[in-house]
């Protein structure tokens, strides 16, 4: 009997509460379990599935909007139509080649009006590049390298890793097991508090602590692959890291406080760039960069 009850838990262990409910109904019908045991197994399976459920892309989008709103309460935006047009065209080209071209709200790219050298990728696809960073890059390909690195953080959902597991479990627990679509006042208050905490978790990682080294190296690797797929010269990515390394000697804040040392990043990307031959940049690509960059 014990073994048969264990079998009933199999679908639950495999992560499907609906299948568990079907299985327990079969078990009840064949006399393997009692009604009380069926209810207990069903309750446990539903609870476990909800606790295990990942953050949906729609939730990721709302978290990202919150993080962006918080960043924008600290930084001004550079409202320059030509730059916005140019950056969003580069970003859209890279996004198509990123492996995750469609995300809930789409990718959007903006410039923060600050001398600080930095870039931020909010979960859900809002990406910020600072004017300080724009002044570091020497070509469209280098700028594409910055954008591709940030797109990598979004596609791999690195920002969401910052959310405390305990907090997310609390979110899922707050939702309860009933199918009601409307929240009670207490539920809504609790979720708003948890939403604030979630935004804070991600903000702290993006702006203060930085991602893990592993996530940074992964974003570099993905950036190189994405640049290559898009027809950009990936060797310009190394030039970008070298330029940043030059700035690192003068500055310590911004990207330099949240990212691994540029020398380490250059060393790590060597393998991915080894087989690539440097290509001649098309004149139009050089010209359009110069046309826009003079405003930065």
């Amino acid at each position: 009997m014990k073994a048969k009850i264990m079998i009933l838990f199999l679908p639950f262990l495999l992560g499907c509460a609906t299948a568990t409910q079907v299985a327990t109904t079969v078990g009840l019908g064949t006399g393997v379990i009692t009604e009380g045991q069926k209810q207990m197994i069903d309750r446990t399976a539903i609870k476990a599935e909800r606790a295990a459920r990942p953050i949906t892309e729609r939730e990721e989008y709302y978290i990202g909007r919150g993080v962006a709103a918080r960043i924008l309460s600290q930084y001004k935006v550079y409202h320059h139509p030509e730059t916005i047009w140019y950056l969003n065209h580069i970003g859209s080209t890279l996004a198509i080649n990123s492996g995750r071209p469609y995300i809930y709200g789409g990718f959007h790219f903006a410039v923060l009006d600050t001398e600080e050298i930095n870039a931020f990728a909010c979960p859900g696809g809002i990406i910020f590049i600072t004017r300080g960073m724009l002044n570091v890059v020497h070509s469209e390909d280098e700028l594409a390298g910055v954008v591709a690195h940030e797109i990598g953080h979004v596609t791999q959902k690195h920002g969401l890793k910052a959310i405390s597991k305990a907090r997310w479990t609390q979110v899922v627990t707050t939702l309860g097991m009933e199918a009601a679509r409307e929240y009670t006042g207490a539920q809504l208050d609790s979720l708003i508090g948890l939403f604030e905490g979630t935004i804070d978790d991600v903000f702290q990682t993006l702006v203060v602590k930085g991602y893990s080294r592993g996530d940074e190296y992964e974003a570099d690797k993905l950036a190189i692959a994405c640049l290559q797929a898009s027809g950009y010269d990936p060797t310009e990515f190394r030039n970008l890291l070298e330029s940043l390394n030059g700035c690192q000697e003068k500055e310590s804040g911004g990207i330099f406080s949240t990212h691994p040392n540029m020398v380490d990043r250059i060393a790590k990307t060597k393998k991915d760039l080894r087989v690539t031959e440097r290509s001649l940049l098309p004149p139009e690509r050089i010209a359009r960069f110069k046309r826009v960059a003079r405003y930065w």
């Binding site: 953050i55 949906t56 729609r58 939730e59 709302y62 978290i63 909007r65 919150g66 979110v171 939702l175 679509r181 929240y183 809504l188 208050d189 979720l191 708003i192 939403f195 604030e196 979630t198 935004i199």
Partner: peptide
């Protein structure tokens, strides 16, 4: 359910 427009509105 979860983080919905309603939650964002409250925040």
């Amino acid at each position: 359910k979860g983080f919905t427009p309603e939650v964002e509105h409250g925040y």
